[in-house]
Amino acid sequence: MLSMKNISKVFKTDLVETHALRDFNLEVSEGEFVAVTGPSGSGKTTFLNIAGLLEGFTHGDYFLDGINVSNLSDNKSAAVRNEKIGFIFQGFNLIPDLNLAENIEVPLRYRGFSAKERNRRVEQALEQVGLAARMKHLPTQLSGGQQQRVAIARALAGEPRFLLADEPTGNLDSLMARQVMELLENINQAGTTIIMVTHDPELARRAQRNIQIVDGQVCDFTMYQANAARSASHGSVDKLVANAQG
């Protein structure tokens, strides 16, 4: 479904070059729920942005649904984002001047759906996140958790193949965070592949697979754990985990 081979990403500024990703390799299969953890500045958001075609990369190859999307034109990658990818942001990123229905409609309009189809999908998506009654409300009239559910509804309305979430619960208290997590789990159960960056180890543990990014490189934690168990050197694994989450 998603396959990154030797991806590297260098940010160049006048003073320094930052290697945000180095020889980054990852395979994600259809239907997986992957939680991404790692220290601040390790490259999690960079990875997610590249995965979501929000930014390009310096070297390597990226296949999405079997198609090489490494060098898509700006218009093509916009279309791929629109059709295949749902985004959930830490700050919700709802448009403050638009009511909930209009917010959810935004990607549907770019898709060129008819008004009827848009309405159907908006209603369905709001139903899914339990906010059908508040269609005409403005984002500011909702709590943070509700806003994030609207953002999830917006991501779902396009029926994407996979969802990318960058710390979707980062701005929420633990109760709301759990609700959002449950929602994501339901969505995943229904077949959508999810990649979620989180700082919350408890939420990460609930995902099917954990990967860790350290210094711009993947540490596939589940695989690592298995290897570690075989080599029976538990101490070093614990130390690594402690560092990574520190």
């Binding site: 218009n75 984002r81 990123n93 448009i95 990607p107 770019y110 898709r111 396009g158």
Partner: peptide, 16 residues
Amino acid sequence: TKQIGTRRALGAKKRD
């Protein structure tokens, strides 16, 4: 700025 970035992320083309 952020709204425009978000619209682009959600599939807006430059001409949109």
